[in-house]
Amino acid sequence: MTAAAAPSRFRRPRRENGGDDSGVSARRWFTPWLLIAPGGLWLLIFFVFPLFSLGRLSLQDGGLSNYSTVISDNSTVIIRTFVYATISTLAAIIIGYPLAYVIATKGGKYKNLFLALVILPFFVTYLVRTLSWKILLFDNGPVVGILQSVGILNDSQGILGSPFAVVAALTYNFLPFMVLPIYVSLEKLDHRLLDAAADLYSSPARAFRKITLRLSLPGLFAGTLLTFIPAAGDFVNSELLGSDRTVMIGQIIEKNFGKEFFRPELSALSFMLMAMILVGVIVYARLLGTEEIA
């Protein structure tokens, strides 16, 4: 914005600008645009424009009634999708926050090893990771065996095909996206703040709530988005580990995308998924008050 306000500053010879430490060099105004153009055009043509045309397509033939048709036809699936995504996000917070906290504040010399273990799942393809969950949860597999011997499951009961299997795998698959942003925000935390709180007679719990948790909210926010959004749009976990009772929105799109005639409704469904997620994100940001912090 400063550039727009004072363009003449940027035409000065290089030398006179030497003391400026704003990171802005004395270059011509179009240099940044030359750098942006290739990638920017790519995003404009293959990301922004398709989204617009998807929105337009979703209104074809029936107009807004496409949306009401799609919503009334799939209400159970839509609600189920958001319930699954919410539960797996909450589970990812419950598992991920303490993990990120321990790595950031108590990791010591093992910090990098712990981080490597968190990133390790990315080195095995998503689909294969999910297949490994199928192995783990298979009838007569280790998890079912343990749950049967403890008495949570009957000897005849399995896990595959149940909502639990789908939610557990969703949680697993996106957990690193929860841990890493929280870790980054906790890592930046100035520990002198906690010392100061202790000096001023704050209890550790209060110091955690008022300082650690508060300062890690941006990380928690980012982690929640990075977990909730892919979970809400997923069809792999439910397809591989679920059953007819666990169908999610993504599966409906996946099953029908080859059929030309279904397109307007299908576009409406995907556009609605995006819109609902956007609304969720905005509400969540308000609740968390992230605008002030971030």
Partner: peptide, 17 residues
């Protein structure tokens, strides 16, 4: 924005293009 959008929406909109 592409990072905050479900893959299925990104993929499907590109497919329609």
């Amino acid at each position: 924005l592409p990072l905050t959008m479900p893959e299925i929406v990104l993929g499907f909109s590109l497919l329609t293009l």
